[in-house]
């Protein structure tokens, strides 16, 4: 069972990352990159690494969203 879950999560994380990168709107790209972090949290939990999962959840969605959104506010205009 764990092999199937791993395969599905890897496909999901790659698809989310590709959509995030090719997204023309910047806010959507930032939110989708947070989704990549959350899928990585699922992978870390599957790999029996709860410490790394907690760190990635706190950093990737707490402080990381602040940093990306500040960058969006300052240099956001896309031409």
């Amino acid at each position: 069972m764990i092999g199937l879950i791993l395969l599905g999560t890897f496909i999901a994380v790659i698809v989310i990352a590709f959509v995030a990168i090719t997204q023309p709107k910047l806010p959507d790209a930032i939110i989708l990159s947070m989704g990549v972090g959350l899928a990585a949290v699922v992978l870390f939990v599957l790999f029996q690494a709860p410490d790394v999962a907690l760190t990635e959840a706190v950093i990737g969605t707490g402080i990381g969203s602040l940093i990306y959104l500040m960058a969006l506010k300052h240099l956001g205009e896309q031409k």
Partner: peptide, 25 residues
């Protein structure tokens, strides 16, 4: 709590510090 119980359960200084920073945020 996450900071203090880092040696007994999941967590530790890095995670607890960032949680405190998110409260400040």
């Amino acid at each position: 709590y996450v900071m203090t119980f880092g040696h007994l359960s999941v967590g530790g200084g890095f995670q607890g510090g960032v949680i405190i920073a998110s409260a400040v945020l």
